[in-house]
Amino acid sequence: MVAIGPHDVPPSHRTPVELRHHADWFLLLLKIRARSTLSNKTVVSELDIPSSRTDTSFIPRLRTYVQHLGSYSIDFTLETGKMFIFLAQTLRAVPTPPWRWHNLLKQIHFIGMRSMFVIALTSIFAGMVLALQGFYTLSRFGSEALLGPAVALSMIRELGPVLSGLMITGRAGSAVAAELGIMRIREQIDALEVMGVPPIHFLAVPRFLAGLIVLPLLTVIFDVIGIFGGYLVAVQLLGLSAGTYFGGIESAVSMHDIHTGLIKAFCFGMIITWVCSFKGFFAKRGAEGVSHATTSAVVLASVLILVSDYFITAIML
Protein backbone atom coordinates (compact mmCIF):
# COMPACT_ATOMS: atom_id res chain seq x y z
CA MET A 1 0.00 0.00 0.00
CA VAL A 2 1.39 3.31 -1.05
CA ALA A 3 0.84 6.21 1.26
CA ILE A 4 -1.04 9.08 -0.29
CA GLY A 5 -0.46 12.79 -0.49
CA PRO A 6 1.11 14.51 2.43
CA HIS A 7 2.00 11.24 4.18
CA ASP A 8 4.48 10.74 1.41
CA VAL A 9 6.65 13.52 2.77
CA PRO A 10 10.39 13.30 1.90
CA PRO A 11 12.13 10.28 3.40
CA SER A 12 14.39 11.35 6.17
CA HIS A 13 17.55 10.56 4.25
CA ARG A 14 16.63 13.30 1.78
CA THR A 15 17.38 15.82 4.46
CA PRO A 16 20.73 17.30 3.45
CA VAL A 17 23.47 16.64 5.88
CA GLU A 18 23.77 20.30 6.81
CA LEU A 19 20.35 20.41 8.31
CA ARG A 20 21.28 18.33 11.28
CA HIS A 21 23.92 20.80 12.30
CA HIS A 22 21.25 23.38 12.71
CA ALA A 23 18.52 21.67 14.58
CA ASP A 24 18.62 18.55 16.62
CA TRP A 25 15.03 18.98 17.67
CA PHE A 26 14.29 18.41 14.09
CA LEU A 27 15.53 14.84 14.20
CA LEU A 28 13.26 14.21 17.09
CA LEU A 29 10.33 15.38 15.02
CA LEU A 30 11.46 13.18 12.17
CA LYS A 31 11.35 10.19 14.46
CA ILE A 32 7.89 11.06 15.66
CA ARG A 33 6.78 11.47 12.10
CA ALA A 34 8.23 8.14 11.04
CA ARG A 35 6.13 6.51 13.69
CA SER A 36 3.03 8.41 12.69
CA THR A 37 3.58 7.44 9.07
CA LEU A 38 3.71 3.79 9.99
CA SER A 39 0.49 3.96 11.90
CA ASN A 40 -0.98 6.01 9.12
CA LYS A 41 -0.31 3.42 6.48
CA THR A 42 -2.52 0.95 8.23
CA VAL A 43 -5.17 3.61 8.54
CA VAL A 44 -5.07 4.37 4.87
CA SER A 45 -5.29 0.74 3.92
CA GLU A 46 -8.29 0.29 6.16
CA LEU A 47 -10.01 3.18 4.50
CA ASP A 48 -9.26 1.72 1.13
CA ILE A 49 -11.28 -1.42 1.67
CA PRO A 50 -14.65 -0.01 2.56
CA SER A 51 -17.04 -2.90 1.95
CA SER A 52 -15.91 -5.61 4.33
CA ARG A 53 -13.79 -3.87 6.89
CA THR A 54 -15.22 -0.43 7.46
CA ASP A 55 -16.05 0.04 11.07
CA THR A 56 -18.81 2.58 11.29
CA SER A 57 -18.82 2.89 15.03
CA PHE A 58 -17.90 6.23 16.41
CA ILE A 59 -14.78 5.66 18.50
CA PRO A 60 -12.53 4.07 15.82
CA ARG A 61 -13.53 6.74 13.34
CA LEU A 62 -12.72 9.42 15.81
CA ARG A 63 -9.39 7.78 16.41
CA THR A 64 -8.69 7.70 12.69
CA TYR A 65 -9.59 11.33 12.47
CA VAL A 66 -7.32 12.28 15.32
CA GLN A 67 -4.50 10.24 13.83
CA HIS A 68 -4.88 12.06 10.53
CA LEU A 69 -5.02 15.36 12.28
CA GLY A 70 -1.89 14.55 14.26
CA SER A 71 -0.03 13.37 11.20
CA TYR A 72 -0.98 16.47 9.25
CA SER A 73 0.08 18.74 12.08
CA ILE A 74 3.43 17.04 12.43
CA ASP A 75 3.99 17.11 8.68
CA PHE A 76 3.06 20.76 8.62
CA THR A 77 5.38 21.64 11.47
CA LEU A 78 8.21 19.68 9.90
CA GLU A 79 7.77 21.22 6.50
CA THR A 80 7.60 24.71 7.96
CA GLY A 81 10.68 24.08 10.06
CA LYS A 82 12.57 22.76 7.06
CA MET A 83 11.54 25.75 5.01
CA PHE A 84 12.82 28.20 7.56
CA ILE A 85 16.07 26.30 8.02
CA PHE A 86 16.46 26.40 4.25
CA LEU A 87 15.87 30.16 4.27
CA ALA A 88 18.39 30.61 7.08
CA GLN A 89 20.97 28.54 5.20
CA THR A 90 20.37 30.54 2.05
CA LEU A 91 20.71 33.84 3.88
CA ARG A 92 23.88 32.65 5.55
CA ALA A 93 25.32 31.54 2.22
CA VAL A 94 24.62 34.88 0.53
CA PRO A 95 27.66 36.75 1.88
CA THR A 96 29.99 33.75 1.56
CA PRO A 97 32.52 33.75 -1.27
CA PRO A 98 33.04 32.66 -4.02
CA TRP A 99 30.56 34.96 -5.74
CA ARG A 100 29.14 33.46 -8.84
CA TRP A 101 28.30 36.54 -10.92
CA HIS A 102 27.74 34.49 -14.00
CA ASN A 103 25.09 32.33 -12.32
CA LEU A 104 23.43 35.42 -10.90
CA LEU A 105 23.27 37.13 -14.28
CA LYS A 106 21.89 33.97 -15.82
CA GLN A 107 19.12 33.84 -13.24
CA ILE A 108 18.35 37.54 -13.60
CA HIS A 109 18.05 36.97 -17.31
CA PHE A 110 15.86 33.94 -16.83
CA ILE A 111 13.57 35.27 -14.10
CA GLY A 112 13.56 38.88 -15.25
CA MET A 113 14.25 39.37 -18.94
CA ARG A 114 12.29 36.38 -20.10
CA SER A 115 9.26 37.45 -18.06
CA MET A 116 9.06 40.91 -19.62
CA PHE A 117 6.54 39.96 -22.27
CA VAL A 118 4.16 38.35 -19.81
CA ILE A 119 4.47 41.34 -17.53
CA ALA A 120 3.83 43.81 -20.34
CA LEU A 121 0.81 41.90 -21.56
CA THR A 122 -0.83 41.44 -18.16
CA SER A 123 -0.09 44.95 -16.99
CA ILE A 124 -1.59 46.71 -19.98
CA PHE A 125 -4.82 44.77 -19.67
CA ALA A 126 -4.90 45.19 -15.91
CA GLY A 127 -4.58 48.93 -16.36
CA MET A 128 -7.24 48.97 -19.05
CA VAL A 129 -9.80 47.03 -17.07
CA LEU A 130 -9.07 49.10 -13.99
CA ALA A 131 -9.80 52.28 -15.92
CA LEU A 132 -12.97 50.80 -17.36
CA GLN A 133 -14.29 49.64 -14.00
CA GLY A 134 -13.13 52.80 -12.27
CA PHE A 135 -14.83 55.01 -14.80
CA TYR A 136 -18.07 53.07 -14.42
CA THR A 137 -17.98 53.42 -10.63
CA LEU A 138 -16.68 56.99 -10.41
CA SER A 139 -19.08 58.31 -13.02
CA ARG A 140 -21.96 57.40 -10.71
CA PHE A 141 -20.66 59.98 -8.29
CA GLY A 142 -19.60 62.39 -10.96
CA SER A 143 -15.97 62.16 -9.98
CA GLU A 144 -14.44 60.88 -13.24
CA ALA A 145 -11.58 63.29 -12.68
CA LEU A 146 -10.28 60.98 -9.97
CA LEU A 147 -9.83 58.12 -12.45
CA GLY A 148 -6.11 58.79 -12.92
CA PRO A 149 -5.28 58.61 -9.19
CA ALA A 150 -7.55 55.59 -8.75
CA VAL A 151 -5.74 53.64 -11.46
CA ALA A 152 -2.30 54.76 -10.41
CA LEU A 153 -2.76 54.15 -6.70
CA SER A 154 -4.23 50.69 -7.12
CA MET A 155 -1.48 49.85 -9.59
CA ILE A 156 1.41 51.14 -7.54
CA ARG A 157 0.23 50.07 -4.11
CA GLU A 158 -1.43 46.80 -4.87
CA LEU A 159 -1.86 45.37 -8.33
CA GLY A 160 1.65 46.01 -9.59
CA PRO A 161 3.51 43.99 -6.97
CA VAL A 162 0.82 41.34 -6.46
CA LEU A 163 0.13 40.63 -10.10
CA SER A 164 3.81 40.66 -11.07
CA GLY A 165 4.46 38.36 -8.11
CA LEU A 166 1.79 35.95 -9.23
CA MET A 167 2.89 36.06 -12.87
CA ILE A 168 6.52 35.49 -11.96
CA THR A 169 5.50 32.61 -9.71
CA GLY A 170 3.69 31.02 -12.60
CA ARG A 171 6.32 31.68 -15.19
CA ALA A 172 9.66 31.54 -13.40
CA GLY A 173 8.90 30.04 -9.99
CA SER A 174 7.45 26.90 -11.49
CA ALA A 175 10.50 26.59 -13.73
CA VAL A 176 12.84 26.99 -10.76
CA ALA A 177 11.00 24.29 -8.81
CA ALA A 178 10.95 21.93 -11.79
CA GLU A 179 14.58 22.49 -12.68
CA LEU A 180 15.83 21.95 -9.15
CA GLY A 181 13.45 19.01 -8.75
CA ILE A 182 14.91 17.32 -11.80
CA MET A 183 18.40 18.02 -10.51
CA ARG A 184 17.39 16.38 -7.25
CA ILE A 185 15.92 13.22 -8.74
CA ARG A 186 18.78 12.82 -11.21
CA GLU A 187 21.20 13.06 -8.28
CA GLN A 188 22.82 16.23 -9.61
CA ILE A 189 22.33 17.97 -6.28
CA ASP A 190 23.95 14.98 -4.58
CA ALA A 191 26.78 15.22 -7.10
CA LEU A 192 27.37 18.85 -6.15
CA GLU A 193 27.46 17.91 -2.52
CA VAL A 194 29.93 15.09 -3.10
CA MET A 195 32.23 17.40 -5.05
CA GLY A 196 32.32 19.68 -2.03
CA VAL A 197 30.32 22.43 -3.73
CA PRO A 198 27.53 23.42 -1.33
CA PRO A 199 24.31 23.07 -3.36
CA ILE A 200 22.53 25.86 -1.52
CA HIS A 201 25.33 28.24 -2.30
CA PHE A 202 25.55 27.13 -5.90
CA LEU A 203 21.86 26.77 -6.75
CA ALA A 204 19.66 28.57 -4.26
CA VAL A 205 21.63 31.76 -3.66
CA PRO A 206 21.77 33.05 -7.27
CA ARG A 207 18.05 32.40 -7.70
CA PHE A 208 17.27 34.06 -4.40
CA LEU A 209 19.27 37.18 -5.20
CA ALA A 210 17.88 37.31 -8.71
CA GLY A 211 14.36 37.27 -7.27
CA LEU A 212 15.18 40.13 -4.91
CA ILE A 213 16.64 42.22 -7.70
CA VAL A 214 14.20 41.43 -10.44
CA LEU A 215 10.80 41.64 -8.79
CA PRO A 216 10.98 45.37 -7.85
CA LEU A 217 12.20 46.18 -11.36
CA LEU A 218 9.43 44.19 -13.01
CA THR A 219 6.92 45.81 -10.68
CA VAL A 220 8.00 49.26 -11.78
CA ILE A 221 7.58 48.23 -15.39
CA PHE A 222 4.20 46.75 -14.55
CA ASP A 223 3.10 50.00 -12.90
CA VAL A 224 4.19 52.18 -15.79
CA ILE A 225 2.61 50.04 -18.49
CA GLY A 226 -0.51 49.58 -16.36
CA ILE A 227 -0.97 53.32 -15.97
CA PHE A 228 -0.43 53.69 -19.68
CA GLY A 229 -3.13 51.02 -20.28
CA GLY A 230 -5.44 53.06 -18.06
CA TYR A 231 -4.61 56.12 -20.15
CA LEU A 232 -5.54 54.29 -23.35
CA VAL A 233 -8.98 53.46 -22.02
CA ALA A 234 -9.65 56.66 -20.05
CA VAL A 235 -8.38 59.17 -22.59
CA GLN A 236 -8.56 57.47 -25.96
CA LEU A 237 -11.72 55.46 -25.40
CA LEU A 238 -13.77 57.28 -22.79
CA GLY A 239 -12.77 60.78 -23.70
CA LEU A 240 -11.25 62.00 -20.43
CA SER A 241 -8.64 64.68 -21.01
CA ALA A 242 -5.02 63.61 -20.74
CA GLY A 243 -4.31 66.54 -18.45
CA THR A 244 -6.95 65.41 -15.97
CA TYR A 245 -5.71 61.82 -16.03
CA PHE A 246 -2.00 62.50 -15.55
CA GLY A 247 -2.37 65.65 -13.45
CA GLY A 248 -4.46 63.77 -10.92
CA ILE A 249 -1.84 61.05 -10.72
CA GLU A 250 0.97 63.49 -10.11
CA SER A 251 -0.79 65.18 -7.22
CA ALA A 252 -2.22 62.03 -5.62
CA VAL A 253 0.67 59.56 -5.63
CA SER A 254 3.16 60.09 -2.83
CA MET A 255 6.62 58.64 -2.36
CA HIS A 256 5.21 56.53 0.44
CA ASP A 257 2.90 54.74 -1.99
CA ILE A 258 5.80 53.92 -4.25
CA HIS A 259 7.87 52.66 -1.32
CA THR A 260 5.02 50.43 -0.19
CA GLY A 261 4.78 48.90 -3.64
CA LEU A 262 8.49 48.33 -3.90
CA ILE A 263 8.78 46.80 -0.44
CA LYS A 264 6.00 44.43 -1.35
CA ALA A 265 7.75 43.50 -4.58
CA PHE A 266 10.97 42.88 -2.70
CA CYS A 267 9.21 40.57 -0.22
CA PHE A 268 7.41 38.72 -2.99
CA GLY A 269 10.67 38.24 -4.82
CA MET A 270 12.05 36.61 -1.71
CA ILE A 271 8.97 34.44 -1.19
CA ILE A 272 8.90 33.19 -4.78
CA THR A 273 12.50 32.10 -5.03
CA TRP A 274 12.63 30.80 -1.49
CA VAL A 275 9.51 28.64 -1.74
CA CYS A 276 10.18 27.43 -5.27
CA SER A 277 13.83 26.59 -4.60
CA PHE A 278 12.86 24.80 -1.42
CA LYS A 279 10.19 22.70 -3.08
CA GLY A 280 12.51 21.80 -5.93
CA PHE A 281 15.36 20.99 -3.59
CA PHE A 282 13.30 18.46 -1.70
CA ALA A 283 11.38 16.94 -4.58
CA LYS A 284 10.62 13.28 -4.16
CA ARG A 285 11.61 10.53 -6.52
CA GLY A 286 10.23 10.21 -10.00
CA ALA A 287 8.44 12.45 -12.44
CA GLU A 288 5.50 12.56 -10.07
CA GLY A 289 7.71 13.96 -7.34
CA VAL A 290 8.82 16.80 -9.61
CA SER A 291 5.31 17.62 -10.75
CA HIS A 292 4.13 17.59 -7.15
CA ALA A 293 6.99 19.86 -6.14
CA THR A 294 6.19 22.28 -8.96
CA THR A 295 2.47 22.43 -8.23
CA SER A 296 2.88 22.85 -4.52
CA ALA A 297 5.58 25.47 -5.04
CA VAL A 298 3.28 27.57 -7.21
CA VAL A 299 0.32 27.16 -4.89
CA LEU A 300 2.26 27.90 -1.74
CA ALA A 301 4.11 30.87 -3.21
CA SER A 302 0.86 32.37 -4.52
CA VAL A 303 -0.88 31.91 -1.20
CA LEU A 304 2.04 33.37 0.71
CA ILE A 305 2.13 36.36 -1.63
CA LEU A 306 -1.52 37.17 -0.96
CA VAL A 307 -1.27 36.55 2.76
CA SER A 308 1.88 38.59 3.22
CA ASP A 309 0.37 41.29 1.00
CA TYR A 310 -2.33 41.82 3.59
CA PHE A 311 0.13 42.06 6.44
CA ILE A 312 2.55 44.35 4.65
CA THR A 313 -0.36 46.61 3.73
CA ALA A 314 -1.60 46.62 7.30
CA ILE A 315 1.84 47.52 8.61
CA MET A 316 2.63 50.15 5.99
CA LEU A 317 -0.69 51.98 5.92
Partner: peptide, 15 residues
Amino acid sequence: RRHISLLFQGGALFD
Protein backbone atom coordinates in the same frame (compact mmCIF):
# COMPACT_ATOMS: atom_id res chain seq x y z
CA ARG B 1 34.78 15.23 0.17
CA ARG B 2 37.13 17.08 -2.10
CA HIS B 3 39.46 14.11 -1.85
CA ILE B 4 36.74 11.67 -2.80
CA SER B 5 34.92 11.41 -6.06
CA LEU B 6 31.87 9.38 -6.82
CA LEU B 7 30.59 8.22 -10.17
CA PHE B 8 26.83 7.99 -9.74
CA GLN B 9 24.99 5.05 -11.20
CA GLY B 10 23.01 7.44 -13.40
CA GLY B 11 25.99 9.63 -14.27
CA ALA B 12 24.47 12.78 -12.71
CA LEU B 13 25.98 15.14 -15.28
CA PHE B 14 24.58 18.66 -15.12
CA ASP B 15 22.00 19.11 -17.87
